[in-house]
């Protein structure tokens, strides 16, 4: 039970930082985000599309990302997300938290991080 709760928290926290990191580069739509996570992790993070959108909406609600509909010629209307200033700050903070976390894991459990 405890493990599953931790897993869920971990997953949730990691999903957030993954999304924020991808949006840090440029604005993207939901499908692109899900594809990129899968591609860049070489398929190791089979990321459930189910949690992508609730996460995006939560981030939007917190004011960390900003979503808006964009229409481009010859393409279907898509909702693009970009990082807000608050999102950028949150990303920096999360990155440093993860850094500390991996360092601790390394020291305690001998888990190396790249």
């Amino acid at each position: 039970m405890v493990t599953s709760l931790l897993e869920r928290e971990l997953k949730r926290g990691s999903t957030e930082v993954l999304i924020l990191a991808l949006l840090d580069e440029r604005q993207r739509h939901g499908y692109e985000i899900s594809q990129l996570i899968e591609e860049r992790s070489n398929g190791t993070i089979t990321f459930h599309t189910a949690s992508l959108y609730p996460t995006l909406y939560r981030l939007e609600e917190k004011g960390l990302v900003d979503g808006r509909w964009v229409e481009r010629a010859g393409q279907r209307r898509r909702r693009y997300y970009r990082l807000t200033r608050a999102g950028r700050k949150a990303l920096a903070k999360q990155r440093s938290t993860w850094d500390t976390f991996f360092l601790a894991l390394d020291r305690v459990a001998g888990v190396r991080h790249a």
């Binding site: 459930h48 599309t49 189910a50 949690s51 959108y53 609730p54 909406y57 939007e60 609600e61 917190k62 004011g63």
Partner: peptide, 22 residues
């Protein structure tokens, strides 16, 4: 299949208005 997953998670699929703090 993907749609079935979304339906299961439907409770979280709501966009809420931005917080007042914005």
């Amino acid at each position: 299949d993907l749609i079935d997953v979304w339906v299961r998670e439907a409770a979280d699929l709501h966009r809420r208005p931005k917080r007042a703090s914005s």
